[in-house]
């Protein structure tokens, strides 16, 4: 497994965690926190896909 693939997986996991925490904040009606975590999660998934493309 190459370094770009590893980083892709790491960022995918980080993005999943951020999205989950954002969902938890949303359930608690903390909308600003939820928005920031959801954005962070989406950006992490985007970075992950870029790393994956880089490794092709």
């Amino acid at each position: 497994m190459g370094p770009t693939e590893t980083l892709g997986i790491v960022f995918a996991l980080a993005g999943s965690a951020a999205l989950a925490w954002g969902g938890h904040a949303l359930a608690q009606a903390a909308d600003v926190r939820a928005f920031l975590w959801i954005c962070a999660g989406a950006l992490a998934l985007r970075v992950s896909s870029r790393f994956v493309e880089e490794g092709r």
């Binding site: 951020a18 926190r33 920031l36 975590w37 962070a40 950006l43 985007r46 970075v47 870029r50 880089e54």
Partner: peptide, 21 residues
Amino acid sequence: ARLAGWLLAFFVVAGLALGFE
């Protein structure tokens, strides 16, 4: 791949989110 821009955006937003937390 324009990683640098996306990476920067991620760290900024993640930093803000952590700060709020």
